[in-house]
Amino acid sequence: MEELLFDLGFVLTHYNYWMFVVLMMTGLYITVSYGNLVKKIVGLNIFQTAVFLFYVSTGKIVGGTAPILTDDPDAVYSNPLPHVLILTAIVVGIATTALALALVVRIRETYGTVEEDEIIALEHEMDAAIGGER
């Protein structure tokens, strides 16, 4: 019966890894497919959140509770270590997002656009102008 079409137990214990892969790939698609720099950063944040969810889900114990210790001797606690690492990662993530957004503001001041293909076209124009002066 277990061998029929798919193993339900296997799907139930692995589906959430697949969910995070789908989410991560949506973020990757937004990052690589669109030329607007702000939208790329939003895509990166989605990708990053998917990684966080995946990482925290490895520490989860079914029937367990948050790792805040109680007097109940039978309590099962989820693993606190992934939570700590992801706390650090979230704060580092906002720092890199802020840096990326500051770069976008500077790029807009210098090039007058935040669209990737227009920036590349301007760069080519500048290169051609420098080559022409020589």
Partner: peptide, 24 residues
């Protein structure tokens, strides 16, 4: 997923500060 502290941080930093930076 039992990660209360991460949820707090994500709600404050991800939904709060990040949105403010983005709007700025």
């Amino acid at each position: 997923l039992d990660a209360m502290d991460v949820a707090f941080t994500e709600a404050a930093v991800g939904a709060g500060i990040s949105t403010v930076l983005m709007l700025g």
